[in-house]
Simulated assay, not measured.
Amino acid sequence: MSTTKFELSRNAFGKLILTNEAGEVFEGVSPVRAFPIQSPLISISMVLTDGREVAWIDQLDDLSEESRILVLEELEGREFMPEISRIDSVTSFALPCTWKVSTDRGETEFVLKGDEDIRRIGRASLLITDNHGIQFLIRDMFEIDRHSRKILDRFL
Protein backbone atom coordinates (compact mmCIF):
# COMPACT_ATOMS: atom_id res chain seq x y z
CA MET A 1 0.00 0.00 0.00
CA SER A 2 1.09 3.56 -0.48
CA THR A 3 0.21 6.66 1.48
CA THR A 4 -3.14 8.23 0.60
CA LYS A 5 -2.90 11.91 -0.37
CA PHE A 6 -4.72 14.07 2.18
CA GLU A 7 -4.48 17.17 4.36
CA LEU A 8 -5.17 17.35 8.09
CA SER A 9 -6.39 20.17 10.29
CA ARG A 10 -8.22 20.59 13.61
CA ASN A 11 -11.67 22.05 14.07
CA ALA A 12 -12.64 24.46 16.86
CA PHE A 13 -13.25 21.50 19.20
CA GLY A 14 -9.81 19.98 18.58
CA LYS A 15 -11.02 17.09 16.42
CA LEU A 16 -8.96 16.06 13.41
CA ILE A 17 -10.43 16.85 10.00
CA LEU A 18 -9.12 14.95 6.99
CA THR A 19 -9.63 16.22 3.44
CA ASN A 20 -8.70 13.74 0.72
CA GLU A 21 -7.62 14.36 -2.88
CA ALA A 22 -11.23 14.13 -4.10
CA GLY A 23 -12.20 16.96 -1.75
CA GLU A 24 -14.16 14.72 0.64
CA VAL A 25 -14.04 15.97 4.23
CA PHE A 26 -14.06 13.58 7.19
CA GLU A 27 -14.43 15.01 10.70
CA GLY A 28 -13.25 13.24 13.84
CA VAL A 29 -10.67 10.90 12.29
CA SER A 30 -8.17 9.07 14.47
CA PRO A 31 -4.82 7.51 13.61
CA VAL A 32 -4.42 3.82 14.50
CA ARG A 33 -1.05 2.10 14.33
CA ALA A 34 -0.96 -1.30 12.63
CA PHE A 35 2.25 -2.29 14.46
CA PRO A 36 2.48 -0.03 17.54
CA ILE A 37 5.48 -1.74 19.13
CA GLN A 38 7.56 -3.17 16.30
CA SER A 39 7.08 -0.36 13.75
CA PRO A 40 5.36 2.65 15.33
CA LEU A 41 6.18 5.11 12.52
CA ILE A 42 4.85 3.09 9.59
CA SER A 43 1.52 1.54 8.60
CA ILE A 44 -0.96 3.93 10.21
CA SER A 45 -4.65 3.91 9.33
CA MET A 46 -6.82 7.00 9.59
CA VAL A 47 -10.24 5.83 10.75
CA LEU A 48 -13.61 7.33 11.58
CA THR A 49 -15.39 6.73 14.90
CA ASP A 50 -17.27 3.78 13.34
CA GLY A 51 -13.93 2.14 12.45
CA ARG A 52 -14.12 2.81 8.71
CA GLU A 53 -10.72 3.56 7.19
CA VAL A 54 -10.59 6.76 5.12
CA ALA A 55 -6.83 7.04 4.54
CA TRP A 56 -3.60 5.07 4.89
CA ILE A 57 -0.14 6.27 5.90
CA ASP A 58 2.62 3.97 4.71
CA GLN A 59 5.33 6.05 6.45
CA LEU A 60 4.96 9.18 8.55
CA ASP A 61 7.73 10.80 6.49
CA ASP A 62 5.33 10.75 3.50
CA LEU A 63 3.22 13.46 5.17
CA SER A 64 3.73 17.20 5.26
CA GLU A 65 5.35 18.50 8.44
CA GLU A 66 2.03 19.97 9.63
CA SER A 67 0.10 16.72 9.08
CA ARG A 68 2.86 14.61 10.64
CA ILE A 69 2.79 16.77 13.80
CA LEU A 70 -1.01 16.46 14.04
CA VAL A 71 -0.88 12.66 13.67
CA LEU A 72 1.83 12.34 16.33
CA GLU A 73 -0.03 14.65 18.74
CA GLU A 74 -3.20 12.60 18.31
CA LEU A 75 -1.36 9.31 18.85
CA GLU A 76 0.34 10.61 22.01
CA GLY A 77 -3.01 11.72 23.39
CA ARG A 78 -4.58 8.30 22.83
CA GLU A 79 -1.76 5.93 23.68
CA PHE A 80 -0.19 5.51 27.08
CA MET A 81 2.60 2.97 27.14
CA PRO A 82 5.61 4.16 29.14
CA GLU A 83 8.90 2.76 27.90
CA ILE A 84 11.14 1.35 30.64
CA SER A 85 14.74 2.54 30.35
CA ARG A 86 15.98 1.06 33.64
CA ILE A 87 14.76 -1.28 36.35
CA ASP A 88 16.00 0.29 39.57
CA SER A 89 14.85 -2.42 41.99
CA VAL A 90 12.33 -5.13 42.77
CA THR A 91 11.11 -5.94 46.26
CA SER A 92 11.39 -9.68 45.74
CA PHE A 93 11.89 -12.32 43.07
CA ALA A 94 8.76 -14.04 44.34
CA LEU A 95 5.45 -12.84 42.93
CA PRO A 96 3.67 -10.53 43.50
CA CYS A 97 6.42 -7.94 43.86
CA THR A 98 6.89 -4.20 43.42
CA TRP A 99 9.15 -2.89 40.65
CA LYS A 100 10.77 0.56 40.78
CA VAL A 101 11.58 1.68 37.25
CA SER A 102 12.70 4.67 35.21
CA THR A 103 10.64 5.32 32.11
CA ASP A 104 10.47 7.88 29.32
CA ARG A 105 7.72 9.54 31.42
CA GLY A 106 9.57 9.59 34.72
CA GLU A 107 10.18 7.27 37.63
CA THR A 108 7.41 5.04 38.94
CA GLU A 109 6.68 1.83 40.71
CA PHE A 110 4.16 -0.88 40.00
CA VAL A 111 3.13 -4.33 41.21
CA LEU A 112 3.82 -7.34 39.00
CA LYS A 113 1.26 -10.03 39.88
CA GLY A 114 2.48 -13.04 37.90
CA ASP A 115 4.84 -14.42 35.26
CA GLU A 116 2.09 -14.18 32.65
CA ASP A 117 2.22 -10.38 33.01
CA ILE A 118 5.55 -10.29 31.14
CA ARG A 119 5.06 -11.05 27.44
CA ARG A 120 7.63 -11.24 24.67
CA ILE A 121 6.85 -9.20 21.59
CA GLY A 122 9.08 -10.32 18.74
CA ARG A 123 12.72 -11.20 19.37
CA ALA A 124 13.74 -8.48 21.81
CA SER A 125 10.74 -6.51 23.09
CA LEU A 126 8.81 -7.11 26.30
CA LEU A 127 5.40 -5.92 27.37
CA ILE A 128 4.92 -5.80 31.15
CA THR A 129 1.41 -5.31 32.55
CA ASP A 130 1.02 -4.03 36.10
CA ASN A 131 -1.76 -4.87 38.56
CA HIS A 132 -3.86 -1.94 37.22
CA GLY A 133 -3.59 -3.05 33.59
CA ILE A 134 -1.07 -0.37 32.56
CA GLN A 135 1.36 -1.71 29.99
CA PHE A 136 5.05 -0.86 30.11
CA LEU A 137 7.33 -1.49 27.15
CA ILE A 138 10.94 -2.61 27.09
CA ARG A 139 11.79 -2.00 23.44
CA ASP A 140 14.97 -4.10 23.43
CA MET A 141 15.81 -6.25 26.42
CA PHE A 142 19.31 -6.83 25.03
CA GLU A 143 20.06 -3.08 24.96
CA ILE A 144 18.95 -2.32 28.53
CA ASP A 145 21.67 -1.77 31.18
CA ARG A 146 23.35 -4.73 32.90
CA HIS A 147 21.64 -4.29 36.29
CA SER A 148 18.19 -4.22 34.67
CA ARG A 149 19.03 -7.21 32.48
CA LYS A 150 20.04 -9.26 35.57
CA ILE A 151 16.66 -8.51 37.16
CA LEU A 152 14.80 -9.37 33.96
CA ASP A 153 16.66 -12.68 33.64
CA ARG A 154 15.20 -13.78 36.99
CA PHE A 155 11.64 -13.32 35.64
CA LEU A 156 12.04 -14.69 32.09
Rank of each mutant, 00 (worst) to 15 (best):
T3V: 07
T3Q: 08
F6E: 04
L8D: 08
S9C: 07
A12L: 12
K15S: 13
I17D: 02
T19W: 01
N20T: 10
A22N: 11
A22K: 12
V29P: 03
P31F: 06
P31E: 06
V32R: 15
P36L: 07
I37V: 15
Q38P: 00
S39V: 10
P40W: 03
S45I: 02
V47W: 04
R52Y: 06
L60H: 02
S64T: 15
E65N: 11
E66T: 12
I69Q: 13
L72A: 08
L72F: 06
G77E: 10
G77M: 08
P82Y: 04
E83F: 00
S89H: 06
S89K: 10
S92G: 05
P96G: 03
T98R: 12
W99D: 02
K100L: 02
T103N: 06
D104N: 15
R105M: 11
K113M: 14
G114P: 00
G114I: 01
D115Q: 11
E116A: 14
D117Y: 09
D117F: 09
R119K: 15
A124W: 09
T129E: 13
N131D: 15
Q135D: 12
F136D: 02
D140H: 07
E143Q: 14
S148M: 04
S148G: 06
K150V: 13
D153P: 00
F155L: 10
L156K: 04
